[in-house]
């Protein structure tokens, strides 16, 4: 179940790729060739390294990051307190819902925190209610009221 990894052995070229390609990927006929040239790599080497980093789960994805709210959908942070003796069972029950985009175990009485993402705003309540029905646990809902600007890049 866990997808937490020990840091993978990344070389300087891998780090340069991650740092350079967290946005502004070109919209042109041969975007990998353009991005590779800026990094001093061949297109084939960039593609091979991206392939490997995706396979190794160094990258969770390579492509567009969508903002579902701008598509008329909604996100909602939610949390529940899962009894330790049935924690893994509750993980399976919660993760089985497509609306659950991310899920983290956290060290707190509220020990499972997940993000619901649905195409329709009313889908959030339906998903949270369905998770309550499946788990028998109360789903606490923390919809965002305001997002403050952040720089969303991490240096590799």
């Amino acid at each position: 179940m866990s997808v937490a990894h020990a840091p993978a052995p990344l070389d300087d070229t891998d780090r340069a790729i991650i740092n350079a390609l967290q946005g502004e990927f070109p919209l042109c006929e041969n975007p990998y060739a353009v991005a590779a040239e800026a990094l001093g790599l061949s297109e084939a080497e960039l593609l091979a390294r991206l392939q490997r980093m995706l396979a190794d789960k160094v990258l969770t994805r390579f492509g567009p990051m969508f903002q579902i709210e701008r598509m008329g959908g909604a996100f909602c942070l939610a949390a529940l307190a899962a009894p330790e003796q049935r924690y893994d069972e509750v993980v399976e029950q919660v993760n089985a819902f497509d609306a659950v985009a991310h899920n983290y175990r956290r060290e707190h009485a509220l020990n499972m925190w997940f993000v619901l993402a649905t195409e329709q705003p009313e889908g959030i309540a339906a998903a949270a209610d369905a998770i309550e029905a499946a788990t028998g646990l109360t789903v606490r809902r923390f919809p965002k009221q305001r997002e403050y600007f952040v720089e969303m890049r991490l240096k590799a």
């Binding site: 946005g23 502004e24 990258l59 567009p64 701008r70 991490l154």
Partner: peptide, 20 residues
């Protein structure tokens, strides 16, 4: 341009790049 796409590129796994 409309913000439906936040950005296009690599989405790193925080753990794998050392943010454990």
């Amino acid at each position: 341009a409309r913000g439906v796409i936040r950005r296009i590129g690599a989405v790193p796994n925080h753990y794998a790049i050392g943010y454990t």
